[in-house]
Design a protein around this nucleic acid. Structure first.
Lengths: 194, 194
DNA sequence: CCTACCGATCGGTAGG
DNA sequence: CCTACCGATCGGTAGG
């Protein structure tokens, strides 16, 4: 939908240069966190001085919120599609988990969400991130609703635990023989008790 | 063992004043993270200027490492005791989980571990934290070894997922009708598939 | 434990 | 996009 480039290069909104900068910033934020990434760091990677970035963005805060939102937009779309392709509540859940893990564990793109360092972020930013994340999690709320779970399981806690699991995997996962899809299978195997 | 106070007040190692400062620092680090807590913040809570803290500690880094170590020491001791009091692998695991959650979710003491913001911390500090945490996790390695798990479950991944779950609960838990022990029961109910 | 300060770094801006 | 800078804040220190 927005993949084909606009006619020519202007310095505003959707410019290619701006997209490059967003991608660089997303990678740095994902690796070093919000506070651990300075505007000068981003500038260094982009080949300009920190101050020059302000031609393309309004503030560090707005940049972070925009990246977070774009990442969740992309993730929602990919997950919804993966879920559509499956039949049965557990197959749908596993597809959603595998897709989210693939996105989270491939930290090389604009689409990597950053759901983990809310505590590092200014209060005003945090509020926006939480609101957006809550909407994102509705996707999983629906999936968990349709699971056939034992009655003693609290679905709200269950969903929280599952999402926590998915979101914090990036903290310890290292690429190797264990693929994201394998990990998703293990997680669902655990969460799918008889 | 170290609970009764030393004869009188000196300004060195084990002074009461120092203990107060460590407690204040631990709370702030737990709430705001490593980078989000300045020495001036700690001083403000302690009623002194930031620079004055350096009579009691060597550096911010050393302070954080010391707090992390002390918290894990205390947690290990409490968990080992709780495990000893139970029979059977699942009962032992649940006791360990409940104890760890109780510690993590009562953020008002020197004993609250901070296992979550390793990315915020300087490299030299991170290495020490990881080494200490790995030793701590051996406690759970032993517990997971003795579980009767289905053969298709990878115990190393299983342990990682469980610990991730326990350690990241503090990010979303809010005190209420759901007690730490209840949460531990829910987690173990999920991880204990038939 | 304070005063008074250091060098470094931060997000951000004016003006070209 | 750069030069040159702002005010704020950081960890830490000397000297009392």
């Amino acid at each position: 939908m927005k993949t084909n480039p606009t006619p020519s290069g202007q310095t505003e909104e959707g410019s290619e240069r701006r997209r490059q900068i967003l991608e660089i910033a997303a990678q740095l934020f994902a690796r070093k966190g919000y506070r651990g990434t300075s505007m000068r760091d981003i500038g260094l990677q982009a080949g300009v001085l920190g101050g020059s970035l302000y031609h393309h963005i309004k503030s560090k805060d707005a940049l972070f919120v925009e990246l977070h939102g774009a990442a969740l937009d992309a993730a929602e779309e990919r997950i919804a599609k993966a879920v559509r392709d499956q039949d049965g509540p557990w197959a749908k859940l596993q597809a959603a988990c595998a897709t989210l893990l693939e996105i989270q564990l491939a930290p090389d793109s604009l689409t990597t969400p950053m759901m983990n360092d809310f505590r590092e972020v200014p209060d005003a930013v945090r509020k926006q991130l939480i609101a957006r994340r809550d909407r994102f999690e509705d996707l999983f709320r629906v999936l968990v609703e349709s699971l056939p779970l034992r009655p003693e399981i609290d679905r709200s806690i269950y969903r929280n635990l599952l999402l926590t699991q998915l979101n914090s995997t990036a903290d310890w996962y290292r690429p190797g023989r264990l693929k994201p899809a394998d990990l998703a299978a293990q997680i669902v195997a655990i969460f799918r008790q008889g």
